[in-house]
Nucleic acid binder design. Structure first.
Lengths: 212, 212
DNA sequence: TAGATTGTTAATCGATTAACAATC
DNA sequence: TAGATTGTTAATCGATTAACAATC
């Protein structure tokens, strides 16, 4: 069905999903691409093009059924499935992610947390045990781990990432400020906080320049 | 000098900056666009085009001086300046950000942390006091706060964001899963973790589909 | 049926890549 | 000078927007 959709389109789906979820919550039953375009500040044309990448979900003269569209986009994003997730690195960021109950609700089930620090072993976050990194291999091979969130320092991230691939993890959610260079086709989604802050810094700097 | 550079270009600058920093660390003095293109997995043409948006930093027949280029990109990104930053919301994510010493090093100085929870008042993270949200207005007006990192739940984020704008903050680094809809031209940089995870989920789902 | 709005094709715009003259 | 590599123009590619026929 959906082969080779551009990443520009995929990048917009979660935002559509969020708006449609809000509309559903608010009890809105139908919406036209034009109404949605006003709310979201994008063109109606883009909305229709985006949805039509996956086969039309609307109806001429009517628009889109909010709940149906919400569910369909959820399916496209795989939110109707359950994925087992582990977190590597129980530092501040790892703990923050471990505490996000929303991820669980959306089908991302946290099944384990790993850290190199032996002092943390035996502790747990939301009943998920923190384990020694030594147990990583056996744990992954025993459990069906789809996603590993990598919240460890830059230095060790590439080596650990390689292990994760070898042990059979399917995707890495990478928070380390480094490119992991994994085998062709392996799924990596990067969250580079420092880069985000630099873009903000650029905007601040540029706006100061302009006002002179 | 640099007016209206596309956000595609700006989005790539921090990555260039990271690679050039690593090269500098490694003692590399010069690099050609072609060598850099191999390392970074982008075209040499794009590298040269990107840099030439800001005036050429290279030299024909030689390439680019690593340290000079690193410093120039740093200046473009505003990393030669100092910005005062506050964090609104001392939950897990707020604490994680507060503990990032790297941001301080790059000129983002954390000057205050705010939370609605009165129990946290009086505590501090890395010697930065956690204050009641009641003190937000006076604090911002007394200190020169450039950036506010917003790490609070979705529900209250838009209202707090509005206040931040009114009180004179220059930019918001928004971690709440909501669009803030602030006045035209006000700087917002979003980090939507849930959306990032959904894109990863899409990739996982699509790869399963393909392998069937 | 008439009106509304989609799905889809065509036109435009912008970003990326290729090519090469300029020049170190 | 000859070789290398940039800076920059031109060609290509892809994404966005506009337009409209199909259809509910």
């Amino acid at each position: 069905m959906a082969e080779n959709i551009s990443s520009a389109v995929i990048g917009r789906l979660p935002r559509y999903y969020r708006y449609l979820g809000d509309l559903k919550e608010a009890g809105v039953v139908r919406i036209s691409s034009q109404e949605l375009s006003k709310k979201m500040n994008v063109t109606a044309s883009q909305i229709r093009q985006d949805f039509n990448n996956f086969g039309g979900f609307g109806q001429q003269g009517y628009g889109y059924n909010v709940e149906l569209l919400y569910n369909e986009i959820g399916k496209i994003l795989g939110l109707d499935k359950n994925f087992n997730m582990i977190i590597i690195g129980a530092g501040n960021l790892g703990q923050a992610i471990a505490n996000y109950k929303d991820f669980d609700r959306r089908g991302f089930k946290l099944v384990g947390i790993f850290d190199v620090n032996p002092k943390l072993e035996g502790l747990s976050i939301r009943d998920i045990p923190i384990m020694s990194i030594d147990k990583l291999e056996s744990f992954i091979k025993e459990h069906n781990v789809h996603i590993a969130a990598l919240t460890i320092p830059k230095l060790h991230a590439p080596a650990i990432a390689k292990q994760l691939v070898d042990y059979g993890v399917k995707a890495i959610w990478n928070f380390a400020p480094v490119d992991l260079n994994l085998p062709e086709g392996f799924i990596v989604e990067n969250v580079h906080l420092a880069e985000s802050l630099m873009q903000l810094s650029y905007a601040l700097t540029a706006s100061e320049r302009d006002s002179n």
